[in-house]
Design a protein around this nucleic acid. Structure first.
Lengths: 139, 139
DNA sequence: TATATAATGTTCTTAAAAAGAACAGATGAG
DNA sequence: CTCATCTGTTCTTTTTAAGAACATTATATA
């Protein structure tokens, strides 16, 4: 089984927080025996549990699973995230768009609705918007 | 369902790396259909797969699952620039919106068009969008 | 040391969830 | 339009983790 470090890390952080297996199990609403199994490497927690654990222990997921990535990630998650995006969309207009978005609360609401739609429906909206806007621009 | 961002992130990074679902599936030695299911939020990849993905995409696990805790933010140019704005609109959903915007180039184009309109016409669009989206959400 | 009690490890069965294959639909180039 | 590629979904099977019960170890206290 890969993720060799995970069982060890789990036990370490649990003890660091002075939890018994039972207490941790209660926090996560799982049985105690499964906590034991995680710590002994018999079974892997799923992603949802892993996220909960990283929150409880106040560590990153990467720290929890103990998989030092090959490249060194000095940047915070936030920074890494947006930095990548900016590399792709280095276009300065993106900054302006974000400014615009930040200042325009109703638009935020609209976009949140839009986001909640399936991609297919988003595209429907897209198409409409395009023609509607072009239409309006004539005036 | 938790981990809302994961499907979206997954698709984003796959496309960023110019992989088809099949190519990514081959790298991971899984079927293509399961990749589709991950991207559509029907199923969660397990921890082992998640780690592999973070290596392939060269991002942190936390970035992959999109559960970046705000407490770990480090100052970046981006953050410095938008710091004031974020104070005003401390709503966490704004972060997600910006995220979404950065990843969605067609939407950027749409919004740039939208921005170019007079406020009055923007409001026309707003009203229509609202009803259109509500309509679509019924399906 | 003996014994009680708490904490942890293991086994066995059940249940949940993801995997794959096959089919269906969408997208796009020519 | 047509073919090929890419993606989404359904159905079934398989995998794997979950829980309960039992076993073992560790710790405290008389």
């Amino acid at each position: 089984m890969p993720l060799q470090q995970l069982p060890h890390n789990l036990r370490h952080y649990r003890q660091k927080h002075q939890f018994t297996q039972q207490q941790l199990a209660d926090l996560l609403k799982v049985s105690r025996s499964v906590v034991a199994k995680w710590e002994n490497g018999h079974v892997l927690p799923d992603l949802i549990i892993a996220v909960k654990l990283s929150n409880i222990f106040q560590i990153t997921l990467d720290a929890l699973v103990g998989e030092a990535p090959e490249t060194t990630f000095v940047l915070s998650d936030f920074q890494a995230h947006y930095q990548n995006a900016f590399e792709d969309y280095a276009d300065a207009s993106v900054h302006q768009l974000i400014d615009f978005l930040l200042k325009n609360k109703p638009l935020q609401a609209q976009l949140n609705l839009y986001r909640s739609l399936p991609v297919k429906q988003q595209k429907t909206i897209d198409r409409f918007l395009l023609t509607a806007i072009e239409e309006l621009k004539k005036y």
